[in-house]
Design a protein around this nucleic acid. Structure first.
Lengths: 232, 232
DNA sequence: TATCGTCAAGAGCAGTGCTCTCGAATTCTG
DNA sequence: CAGAATTCGAGAGCACTGCTCTTGACGATA
């Protein structure tokens, strides 16, 4: 009986996959607000109301795309990290930076969906949290590895972090075990700096000022690596 | 004759102001995609088509709001800077950081319009470029002042910027006259780091990890000040 | 074979941006 | 000052959106 049941479920899963594929294509060309359930249905040769059998609302379809996006970005980061020598910590950091930037440039609308302004009226459900942490997990592992190898030596140019942020640091330490609060605040600085730079480039803030964006990015990420205390 | 002419123009200008005011209120509550010309017209007791006499399209209304937003943010930065002692360069930088973060937290949807994902199908016209540079002008002045006073001493922990970014640095030097290419790349790092942190906080990336956001922000901006070479 | 759940289709509601036309008011001109 | 020209608000209408509800058909299950 489960055979016939899975038969139904299989065609259902296949349809869901087809919907998300088309939706992702529309998202890539039109952007988030241009994503229309009716247009997706039209392309599938379906009537619009039929889509609602598979996605109860537009937001649910958006959620599926967001989860896919986080996973794709996380996978890109993982692959870039895996291609480096394990003890080349700076190289791993830079590889992840370039992977994230590269993915963002290749999928601007998807990146905007993940790290841009939240879609109004849309509230990210719990399901998106786990995949969202996939790239930061890669990042944390690099820093933790460098730290345990004794290769994370932050330059003493910063004041000590205030004691009040200790609980926050404790939470972040789950991703970067073994490091000091000082390293954790530096890690947040570098991480936000990375995405700040990618977002500025992608959202047009560099138009007219910075042309050699890859080189500028590379240099700045190297600088953040130094601030983190990664070896030169 | 110019009196009667300005009579018409005056009521026209007044109506435009009223439209943008209502639109800004709607934007603040509903967000950019929730901004509806018909809703604005309804609130004005106008019929929807009449709005098009004043704003040829929704994008034009959006452009007006964007320009207003850049000016409001720039003014907040200017005021924060002006309230500091001229030779307290670190204090001025921190004041501008907090002003920008404060404005962003107070006007999240407007901030998203300026620094979030670009509205799909919307192309920023030339008119937005000048107001957009208002806050960066404040920033550049602080660094230039510190530099001419000999109080900008960047710690020697970074490699030299590659020669290929020299033309970009030259363009940016218009905002921060007199500084080296090295300082310019650091300035970009700090500036993108500032907005990266504000965007992360505003767009929900810190939910569940960082709770003491003001303190975390303050500490990280202080760190970026050190990286810039501003005095302790 | 009869039943029951799943599904696509269609109509319909309320809303959107935007265009067009048509009178009325207002401004400019002779 | 009268007539011409311009500007403006109102209304209807087009094509589109997300979403709901009902209807009828198909296929799996007992």
């Amino acid at each position: 009986m489960s055979a016939s049941r899975t038969a139904r479920e299989r065609v259902r899963a296949e349809l869901i996959r087809e919907i998300t594929d088309i939706a992702r294509r529309h998202l890539a060309t039109e952007g988030a607000t241009g994503l229309s359930l009716r247009a997706v249905a039209r392309e599938m040769g379906m009537v619009s109301s039929a889509i609602y059998r598979y996605f109860p609302s537009r937001d649910d379809l958006l959620t599926a795309l967001i989860i896919d996006g986080y996973n794709a970005l996380g996978e890109a980061a993982e692959k870039a990290d895996a291609a480096c020598a394990r003890d080349d910590y700076t190289g791993r950091w830079l590889a992840v930076c370039h992977a994230i930037r590269g993915w963002a440039l290749a999928h601007p609308h998807e990146y905007a969906l993940l790290y841009g302004s939240p879609v109004p009226g849309y509230r990210a459900p719990e399901d998106t949290i786990a995949p969202a942490a996939r790239d930061t997990a890669v990042y944390g592992r690099i820093l933790a590895d460098a730290n345990t190898a004794g290769r994370l030596v932050p330059p003493a140019i910063l004041p000590e972090p205030p004691a009040i942020i200790a609980p926050d640091a404790e939470a972040i330490r789950m991703l970067i075990p073994g490091v000091s609060d000082d390293v954790i605040t530096r890690a947040v600085t570098a991480w936000t700096g990375l995405f700040g730079m990618v977002s500025f480039e992608l959202f047009g803030q560099f138009v007219g000022t910075i042309d050699h964006r890859a080189e500028f990015f590379e240099h700045n990420m190297t600088g953040l690596a130094r601030l983190l205390g990664l070896p030169a």
